[in-house]
Simulated scan of single mutants.
Amino acid sequence: MESLGELLKSWPGGRSLSEEAERKLKELMRDPLVIKLREKYPDVDEDAIRLNLNRVYQYVSEYRNCTNCPGLDLCPNDYEGHYTLLSSETMNGYTQLIDRKVSCKKFLARQNEEVIRSRIRSFYVDDAALRRGYSSDEILTNDIERAKAVGQVLRYIDRTREQGLGYEGLYLAGRFGTGKTFLMCYLLQELAKAGHSGVIVYMPDFVEDLKALMHEPVKLKETVELMKSTDLLIFDDIGAENLNPWVRDHVLGAILNYRMERKPTFYTSNYDLEALERHFSFTSKDGDELHKGQRIMDRIRPYVETVLVTGENKRGRK
């Protein structure tokens, strides 16, 4: 933003700088914002305004900029997302105007969004799904067929806000494209606003990467520890992965064993719980292992509320 000194220097010749400064002073004295400032601080007379002309000019100019805000990215003020506030202090008979920078609502909102976003980690899930915002009313009316499922998710969010984090999660089962992942991203965002951390993992890609991480034990341990410790963990599209015994028993089993009576785990799947157990009971390497499928389900089934997500396939819909 142009300072008062720069503004005065830019005036065409014929008048002295002092004349232009006096003219600017008279203009500022008539400004409603300055009149309001003087009503709040009666000691601020014309001499005080004259002595602090640059501060007062900046105060008025930045207020006007904020009134006609072009958006945070185009903020014309000296400090993006901040404006000047003035207060008065009288010492030894002299009135001094004190300026300070204050964050605007848009800047505070962006900061809050960044804090919320920092609480959420995604593995192989499109970040756009996490950033996309919908109101609870909108997701309720988006597809009336899935209203019951949406109601269960909203009740879970409200209950967690009121009672704190429990260890029961949600298991969202339904056909392709009914919005299961979106509902879980919505839950993550809403509970991140309440201060909870979260991780969402797209299982098919995650399992493939785990096979490579077998040879990077430090990175593997960091990944597993993150999933153990996060407040909210979502396994997205579980059952669609190409499973092997090591992933099932030593990675997924270890994560679920740690979380099952500590923190909630959430799932989206095209399978119901019985079909998921059959999926976990068979691997391409060892064939049928019913007891191992049952063992992993013992760490899932008792710790989730099942949510059946019905409705039309929204993928590719415009």
Rank of each mutant, 00 (worst) to 15 (best):
G5I: 08
S10K: 13
W11K: 14
P12H: 01
L17W: 05
E20W: 15
A21W: 03
M29G: 10
R30H: 05
D31F: 05
V34R: 11
L37W: 08
L37A: 08
K40N: 02
D43Q: 15
R50I: 03
N52P: 15
N54H: 08
R64K: 14
T67H: 12
N68D: 10
L72D: 06
D73W: 12
H82G: 01
T84I: 15
L85C: 14
Y94V: 12
Y94R: 11
L97I: 14
A109C: 06
R110T: 02
N112T: 02
N112P: 04
E114I: 02
V115A: 09
I116V: 14
R117G: 08
I120N: 01
V125Q: 02
D127M: 07
R132T: 15
G133P: 11
G133S: 14
S135Q: 05
N142A: 13
N142H: 08
R146Q: 12
A149H: 13
V150H: 03
L154V: 03
L154K: 06
I157L: 09
R159Q: 11
R161P: 04
Q163F: 12
G164C: 12
L165H: 01
G169M: 03
R175H: 03
F176L: 05
M184T: 11
Q189T: 13
A192H: 06
G198T: 01
I200M: 13
Y202C: 09
D205I: 13
D205Q: 12
F206T: 05
A212E: 15
E222H: 00
K228R: 13
I234M: 00
I234A: 02
D236V: 04
D237G: 06
A240Q: 06
L243Q: 11
P245E: 05
R248W: 02
L252M: 11
G253H: 04
E261Q: 14
F280R: 08
F280V: 06
D288T: 12
H291T: 10
H291M: 11
R295T: 09
R299A: 07
I300N: 12
E305S: 12
V307A: 04
L308C: 00
G311P: 13
G311C: 10
G311N: 15
E312Q: 14
N313Q: 07
K314Y: 04
K314W: 05
